[in-house]
């Protein structure tokens, strides 16, 4: 007997009718779990009958949406529905055994909806990476070639005032960089002038050797 496992999305409205149908057909309730996502909490209800294990998923239940309880059909689910309420803040309505948010004595409210700093950092990184990849993909689709145009593409998407500011800032930065490279040589000369002659000669020789080496390379 192979183990048949399936996942299926259902809407919140059809949850109770699905549960009723499964009850009639002699399924037993296995569990219910929540997953915290950016678009609310995903609920997964699992039912089993002989070798079948079916998972029905209700996506994106947001704060304030009430979810009907199925405890009147499957009382065994009461720890999980109370858990959903305590740890994820899902508003479950009509529970037979309702612990009113006191099933778990937790220090903070709805702890499973809060990310740890490590996870948050990782998630932000992921989001940035994903955004960059999306932009690249978009560009590839538009047929852009040089990576330098990447910035231009981005700027094009911005509002004009901000884009102008960014451009101005970048130009200023470029100017500054050019100036600083010119300046650095003058600086060395000035410094050498202040040193004692013997040492200065040595430094100069070293610098020239370095330049020659760079030239060769």
């Amino acid at each position: 007997m192979a183990h048949e496992r399936s996942f299926q999305d259902i809407s919140l409205d059809s949850l109770v009718s699905t549960a009723e149908r499964l009850k009639r057909e002699g399924w037993r309730c296995v569990q219910m779990l929540c997953v915290n996502t950016d678009n609310g909490v995903d609920l997964t209800y699992s039912f089993s009958k002989l070798n079948e294990l079916a998972n029905y998923q209700v996506r994106g239940v947001t704060q304030g949406t009430s979810v009907p309880s199925i405890q009147n059909l499957f009382l065994g689910i009461f720890p999980f529905e109370n858990e959903a309420k305590d740890l994820f803040g899902v508003d479950i309505e009509g529970m037979v055994l309702d612990f009113a948010g006191k099933f778990y004595a937790v220090a903070e409210r709805e702890p499973m909806t809060i990310l740890t700093p490590e996870a948050k950092e990782r998630k932000d990184k992921e989001a940035k990476k994903a955004a960059a990849a999306a932009a690249k993909a978009k560009q590839a689709a538009e047929g852009g070639s040089a990576p330098a145009d990447d910035l231009e593409a981005k700027l094009a998407g911005m509002d004009p005032e901000k884009a102008a500011k960014v451009r101005a800032a970048m130009e200023a930065k470029a100017r500054k960089e050019a100036a600083s490279s010119a300046q650095s040589e003058d600086d060395i000369e000035a410094k050498l002038a202040n040193m004692d002659p013997e040492k200065a000669a040595k430094v100069r020789a070293a610098l020239e050797a370095k330049k020659a080496k760079e030239g060769n390379a």
Partner: peptide, 12 residues
């Protein structure tokens, strides 16, 4: 997620 046997047996 780990749903342990005891949690579903509590109602029974």
């Amino acid at each position: 997620r780990m749903r342990t046997p005891t949690s579903i047996n509590l109602a029974g």
